[in-house]
Design a protein around this nucleic acid. Structure first.
Lengths: 231, 231
DNA sequence: TGTACATCAGTGAACGCGCGTTCACTGATGTAC
DNA sequence: TGTACATCAGTGAACGCGCGTTCACTGATGTAC
């Protein structure tokens, strides 16, 4: 039997899958800081040392969870974008997909868009490929758009935003201008800021009566910033 | 000796202060999840049980840290606003003060504007008074302003934002309109979204060459949203 | 001003728990001839 | 097809650590008469 299709390889793959799924459940229930290899071994019905056959360390498992979260979101965005050819609607589609995904997976959202896990630094060589997927889609949408910055807004950007992110290889590759980039980032910050408030419940008792409607307004305003109708 | 000025009362006050300061240092170094009463007792040079003379439990200390963080930020904002009478400049002042404070105290910023601490729910009766200080200042600035929504933007809000936050007592008390409120929240979300990216380093390797300049652009754009010149 | 009592701060041992990680080991599954 | 060997999965005990919280206690500081 070839090593690729052997019983061992299949078991290994299934086991890695189970571990990642259980880790995801623990993450959702108790947060990243409480992620425990022993707890996962317990759920697996296996000695705690057995987990080390599949995972190098706790931190390495955390890295896998981050990558998995990025990929889960990336897949959702790609799927949603599949039917949207009009670049003017892509921005709104990305934003709405992010919201749906974040509300369904608040802890994974916290993992990648919330405060960093203290004492843990993600190895960027493993995290970056998955992490840049959404941002890349966003930049692509901005490039494809005829960004017609509102005349009232363009002068505000002035030369201040020029230096922003210009060292990023993707930006150079896409050939996006400083104005479009700055406006796009501002619009994206607004969407993420609103979403963070909603997902983390930061308005406390003063809840929105209709968060979804409010988010639609945010998307419309963000779209207006980059000069498009994002509906 | 009266109990207010006695040696015991003074010692108590000094001890509570030391505990809160040490807790703040631990928070800054290791994050909220790692906050430990035993570690604080060690730094204090005291038996771990002694801390319980001053603190009910670990969670209670966390609550105090949150209140302290809100107050630290609130004090900074109030001080910065002292010299600013023109309501048109108040929004920008609040935003810039938030940035300065957040960069100086990233972990406290994470505590109040980042992901929630898992397994801990802040008792809102203790957290609210300090927590609403900045938001109240923001609302006051919006009310004092002649919010002249850009004609292109106003229709986007439509009736969607109407329901937002209308159950909040402060909003009713201030008599702020739905349009102003929605635009104000959107602007504030943008500021906080941008700041979160910067403080938590979420753009990774693709760093801004001049984050302060970029933030100024964000403030200008956010100001434009509410129809003012925030410079 | 002096004495009897109450209050408080801090001690140190203990309970019971959880964690990450290592290590020598057994038994089963695969591989090479 | 059968046997000898290598590889792998999983065990269970152990190391050393940290945590929150309780409890009976000593000694000092305050209070009331």
């Amino acid at each position: 039997m070839s090593p690729e299709t052997g019983v061992r390889a299949a078991n290994r793959a299934r086991m890695e899958e189970r571990i990642l799924r259980l880790a995801g459940q623990h993450l959702a229930r108790d947060g990243a800081a409480a992620l425990s290899l022993r707890a996962i071994a317990r759920d697996l019905g296996v000695a705690s040392s057995a987990v080390y056959r599949y995972v190098d360390s706790r931190d390495e498992l955390l890295t896998r969870l981050i990558v998995a979260a990025y990929d889960s979101l990336g897949d959702a965005v790609d799927a949603a974008l599949a039917g949207v050819d009009d670049p003017a609607h892509q921005f709104g589609t990305i934003a709405r997909t992010l919201r749906t995904w974040a509300l369904a997976h608040p802890e994974q959202y916290a993992l990648i868009y919330g405060s960093p896990v203290p004492g843990y630094a993600a190895p960027s060589d493993r995290t970056n490929p998955a992490g840049t997927r959404i941002t890349t889609r966003l930049l692509q949408a901005l490039v494809a758009l005829p960004v017609r910055a509102a005349p009232a807004v363009a002068p505000l950007v002035g030369t201040g935003g020029i230096g922003a992110l210009l060292d990023d290889a993707r930006v150079e590759a896409l050939g996006i201008g400083a104005l479009e980039l700055t406006l796009g980032l501002a619009a994206w910050d607004m969407v993420r800021g609103a979403l963070t408030s909603e997902v983390f419940g930061q308005y406390g008792a003063a809840a929105f009566s209709d968060p979804a409607a409010h988010f639609e307004v945010i998307v419309a305003l963000a779209g207006a910033l980059v000069g498009i109708d994002a509906g």
